Amino acid sequence: MTSKWRRLTDRLAGKTEPEPLWQEGVPDHLDVPIRDWLYEVLRTYDMAVPVAVRLKLPSKILKSRDPYAELATLEDSKNPMLRLEVIDAVLGCVEQALQGASWHHRQTAASYARQLEGILREGGVAFAVSEDGSGLERRMDETLHATYDKAVEAGASRVETAADHLRAAFSEAYGIRPDPSAAYSRAIKAVEAVANPLYLPNEAEPTLGKVRAHLDQGRHKYEMVIADRAGAPADIDAVVAMVSLLWHGQRDRHEGGPTSAPVTQEAAETAVHTAAILVHWISSGSIRRK
């Protein structure tokens, strides 16, 4: 979610379109609030060593008189993302350190995460605090995020691993250092987690490709809960098309073929949202037997 606030001159001019998000690093107008947030959290949880080790930072930082201050103001002209990487590492280290901690301690950490999200959102930064507070992720359109949330909820209600794979796919696609190939692979696994037991219960080695073939050849056996233009339950052509798109689009699954190619960032993001819709539909019973 991005800030809906508009400066006075923009409101007077009738400007409604959102300002572009800051895509790389921490903008100057957020330097002080980010510095203060980092310093307080690093000191409160004594995170200088874990963060420096996780990011493989030079030892001079920990040898300084105030490692917390060094980390809170750390910048590198060759790596404009370094400040965000420090924030991401701090969130991750705190989350890891508080596993099994009391409710009070975890609520305090959650409060820090919400405070940071407020700074990033109001400051127009393209990265947001993840839902579990364990790191940063690329900020997403509200409608798309709602679709993702619904899919995770539906997937968790049916097969817990589907929700886990979907969360991982989202993180790989929208993290500070995206991994398109891993995101696409996780997206497919998320759909397989809910589709394989339902459509291929007796298959020894079920795959999304076999699910696609099963649905394609058995179109007459299934229908959608949504109606077509005649008012009858719609056919599953859209489902088959989406499964086929997801299955055939993973061009890095095998090497050496004439159509083998790396997965692009755009393809990975599309795959994650396609998987989210399929997980939601399959888990919620939107596709049913006649």
Rank of each mutant, 00 (worst) to 15 (best):
V49Q: 13
R219C: 07
I176K: 09
I282P: 13
P233C: 13
P33V: 02
A48T: 14
P50E: 01
I61D: 07
L74R: 03
V159A: 09
I34F: 03
K15T: 06
T161E: 15
I277P: 15
I34K: 00
T207N: 00
L208W: 14
V32D: 14
V159H: 15
L71A: 00
V211P: 13
L8T: 15
D228E: 11
E137D: 13
W281D: 09
S134E: 05
P80C: 06
F170H: 15
K221A: 15
I277H: 15
R35Q: 10
H104Y: 11
Y174E: 11
W22K: 00
A13D: 04
V152W: 03
I176E: 03
A183V: 04
V225M: 05
A109L: 04
S77W: 15
L62K: 10
N202G: 11
P197E: 10
C93G: 01
G231E: 01
D216E: 13
H214W: 00
R43H: 11
K15C: 02
D216I: 04
D31E: 12
V49C: 05
E24F: 07
G123N: 06
E17G: 04
S244R: 10
I226F: 10
D88R: 04
T264K: 02
R288H: 06
R288F: 09
Y68I: 05
F127W: 10
R253E: 08
A268R: 00
K56L: 13
E153G: 12
L198P: 00
S59M: 08
A261H: 01
V263I: 03
Y68M: 08
E95D: 11
E117K: 01
H145S: 12
G256I: 15
L57P: 05
I282R: 09
L62E: 04
L200I: 10
R106V: 04
G257H: 01
Y148I: 12
L38R: 06
G133A: 02
V51D: 07
Y222S: 06
R186A: 15
K150G: 13
S102K: 11
S286A: 15
E269A: 12
H254M: 00
Y174N: 15
L74E: 02
